Structures are given as structure tokens and as C-alpha cells.
Computed example of a mutant assay.
Amino acid sequence: MKHPFFSSTLRELQLFAHAWRFWATFALVVLIFAVSGPYGTSERMTFGVRLGYWLMVHAAAWTIAICLSVMAEVALRERLGNTLMRMMIGSLVAALPIGFALGVIDFAFSGAWNGTSNGLHRAFMALPLCALFCLLTYTAMHRQIAEVSALAQMPSPQTATMASAEPEILVRLKPQNRGPLVRLSVEDHYTEVCTTRGRELVLLRFADALKELGDTPGLRVHRSHWVADAHVEKLRRENGKLFVVMKDGAEIPVSRPNMDAVKTRFGHL
């Protein structure tokens, strides 16, 4: 079983990896540094070398800062309520490894190693940049971070069963899709979960999904379909085939082995 800290951290890191705003901001910052050539890089390097240098610098700095910011955001959730403050702590701590990473990059470009004291000096100089980076990141992505953070704090299916009468499978859904179950259907290797608030595909075997329905009254009407009693409207027959008509208008086929059970359960509707 994955530790909650690592699973939550990976979830938030994936958020950055798939965020086009983040990558657009990164590319813009690298370009600005390459064109302006701060810290004497415009005098020492051609534009092509300068672009490569600042690309490496920012890639290393942003990677370290993001990883430590996310780790702090996850680790301090129960101790510190403000998301920005949690991320800021991690970002400022990142200044130390960033300082030494910049020393390695300078060594790669100049061939001169400036020692530990210079690494500490770079770390001190990186502090305001780390704070600025954290503010920019939070401003651009605080909504997504808050949404992932809220989802990560939801209890696991096992915990939900003990603490609540809600079906376990609802914990697997996005918060906006959680509601009374309507039906389940097989969709390739996924199970489509339909509630009164929406639909969502869950990477879960159908047989396992059925085990997470809890006490929700319902019936498996087909090898690929389960329906909740409360949302069945009526039965309909066409060309010898039987269908369960749901209150939302969906028509679910009934397999021959399940016909008698379906008629007994819903035949009075």
C-alpha cells in the first residue's frame, strides 16, 4: 500500500507536469533571462550558450523548489492551515540545495569549482528568488492545488466505510460527482459510475466495484450493468429483449439469466 504522504505528493507533482500555464511561465522566464543576460552572462556567453545555461539553471532550481514546496504542502497540512505558507516554507528550504546545484552548473560551464562557501552564498542569494517563485506558482495554480489537496484529504475507501454509511466507491470519484448512485457499467478496463451529480470512469474491475456499493439497494441486471432500485422507472420489452428504463432516460439491457430476477424486482413498476 502506498504511504499517504508519497501518494499525495505524487498527485500534486503530476498536477504541475500537466499544467500548460506552468510550462508557459517557465519558458517565458528562461527566455527573459537568456535575452537580458543578467549576472554578467551577456558579456561572457553567446546567446545560444546563454540560453542553454539559463535553461539548466531554471530547470534545476524549479525542480528542486517544486519538489520541496509540494512536500512541505503535504507534510504540514495538519499543522498549518494556509496553503501559501506551507509552500513558502518548502520553497525557502529549497534555497540551500539550489545554491549548490547552481555551483555544479557553473562548474560545468566554467570548469572552476568555487567551494562550499560560495554555495552557501548562492543559497542566500536564492532566497528572494525562491520566495518570488513560490508566489508566482501559487498565484497561477492555487485553485488546482487546493482542489487536489482537498481530494487528498478525503478518507480512503476503507476508512470511509468505517466512518460513514456512504458506499466506498464514492470516495474514488471527484468531489463534484459524489451523490446517490444511479448505475454502474463496464467500459473497457474501467467501471463507469453514474450518480445523480454526474458520471466518471474509475479504473476498477466491475466485480470489485460491486463490492464497494455498500448497502445501496440495487440489482445486477447484466454482466456489464448494475442499477440502483431508487432510480428505476420501468421495464420495457422490444423484440424479445428486456430493458430497464432509468429515471434519467437511460435504457439498460437485461441479460437472459437475469430476466426472472429483474421481473420479480421491478415488474410492478
Rank of each mutant, 00 (worst) to 15 (best):
H3Q: 13
F5H: 10
F6K: 04
S8L: 10
R11Y: 09
L15H: 13
L15A: 13
A17S: 12
H18T: 13
A19D: 10
L28I: 10
V29K: 02
S42D: 13
E43N: 12
R44I: 15
M45W: 13
T63Q: 04
T63D: 01
I64P: 00
A65Q: 09
A65V: 07
C67F: 15
S69W: 03
M71G: 11
A72T: 01
E78T: 14
L80M: 12
L80W: 06
T83W: 12
T83C: 12
L84Q: 08
M85F: 08
M88E: 13
L96T: 13
P97G: 06
G99I: 03
F100R: 02
L102P: 03
G103D: 07
D106T: 08
A112M: 12
G115N: 01
N118C: 10
N118W: 12
L132N: 01
F133S: 06
S149N: 08
L151H: 12
Q153P: 00
Q153W: 06
Q158E: 15
T159D: 12
A163L: 15
E166Y: 03
L173T: 04
P175F: 02
V182E: 12
L184Y: 00
H189S: 08
H189T: 07
Y190C: 06
Y190E: 03
G198P: 06
G198T: 07
G198L: 08
L203F: 02
L203Q: 00
A207R: 14
A209P: 06
R220W: 08
R223T: 06
R223L: 09
S224D: 09
H225A: 06
D229N: 10
A230P: 00
E233K: 11
E233Y: 03
K234I: 05
E238T: 10
G240R: 09
L242Q: 09
V245Q: 07
M246R: 03
K247Y: 01
K247L: 05
D248E: 05
P253W: 13
S255Y: 06
N258P: 04
V262G: 02
R265T: 14
R265V: 07
G267Y: 00
L269C: 10
